[in-house]
């Protein structure tokens, strides 16, 4: 296979599979809490972090993760106060992030670089970035796995979780931060604008066919990894944009899964 002979392609495949698995591991809890678009909110601010990195000449991945984490914490604070649904504060964060990012981008020496973060450019992932991705992705995956039953209880029924003595507030902040770190690394692969797709779509696909939470978690991690690699390989041979190809592939699979679920439910009734 020629694509394994190319060093940049090997790095890209590794990055894609890492992100593909890590993103739905936290995404499943966002979907459970009906916060599927939280990743987008974080992504807008992460974009400003990336632009700041380019402007300052430091690693945009690192500044992106830092900005995303700040955004995650602020958004969680707003959510706690019940102000996340259609609130002006949220709009300010979204547009402030994009506007700030655009401003810094055009002040930097190489404004074209930012395109890679808007739409992703997994083929240009450097060895050093791969290490950052691997470290951040593993931390998210590991901590979410270790905390799985606590997170399930807190997401399924926040009120009862409190009455069970769970530190719900801390768990919510943990989830916001884990989502933020995931957004930061996912951005490198599919871009800011598609980041939520990686968190949410594998879960949305699997939950149509899965019968349990456990199966949804396992299925979406496997599928997330497969979609990333499948999309990347497809993009390589068709010479298309990897990020867009991964997401369009996921949407195609979503449509097929919806059809299958429909067939199955009509077969039962």
């Amino acid at each position: 296979m020629e694509l394994f002979e190319l060093a940049f392609m090997r790095r890209a495949l590794l990055a894609a599979v890492l992100v593909g698995i890590a993103a739905p591991s936290i995404g499943v809890f966002l979907v459970q809490r009906r916060l599927a678009l939280l990743g987008d909110g974080i992504g807008h601010v992460a974009f400003m972090g990336v632009a700041a990195g380019l402007f300052l000449g430091t690693s945009p991945v690192v500044t992106g993760i830092v900005a995303a984490s700040l955004a995650g914490a602020v958004l969680e604070m707003l959510r706690e106060k019940g102000r996340l649904a259609g609130d002006v504060a949220l709009a300010l964060i979204f547009y402030g992030g994009i506007a700030g990012g655009a401003l810094l981008t055009f002040l930097s020496d190489n404004p074209n670089m930012v395109l890679g973060y808007l739409f992703g450019s997994v083929l240009t992932v450097t060895g050093q970035e791969l290490w950052i991705l691997a470290a951040a992705g593993s931390v998210v995956l590991l901590s979410v796995t270790v905390l799985r039953k606590e997170l399930f209880a807190a997401c399924y029924d926040e009120e009862v979780a409190r009455a069970c003595g769970l530190p719900v507030r801390k768990l919510n902040f943990f989830m916001a931060l884990a989502a933020a770190v995931t957004v930061g690394v996912t951005m490198r692969v599919v871009g800011v604008l598609l980041v939520s797709a990686m968190l949410v779509l594998p879960v949305a696909i699997v939950q149509q066919l899965a019968g349990s939470f456990r199966a949804t978690v396992r299925g979406s991690l496997v599928l997330g990894g497969m979609l990333s690699v499948g999309g990347l390989v497809t993009a390589f041979y068709l010479d298309t944009s990897p990020g867009a190809t991964i997401v369009l592939l996921a949407i195609t699979v979503f449509a097929l899964a919806a059809l299958a679920a429909r067939q199955r439910s009509s077969a039962i009734s």
């Binding site: 499943v28 979907v31 459970q32 809490r33 009906r34 599927a36 039953k149 606590e150 399930f152 209880a153 997401c155 399924y156 029924d157 009862v160 979780a161 069970c164 003595g165 769970l166 879960v203 939950q207 899965a210 019968g211 349990s212 939470f213 456990r214 199966a215 949804t216």
Partner: peptide
């Protein structure tokens, strides 16, 4: 909730108060 859960998974989640963290 947003993601599928079985009856057993939901009932088991009540054990969180006693289960080892």
């Amino acid at each position: 909730s947003g993601v599928p859960a079985t009856v057993e998974e939901v009932v088991l989640s009540g054990r969180i108060a006693l289960a080892k963290r």
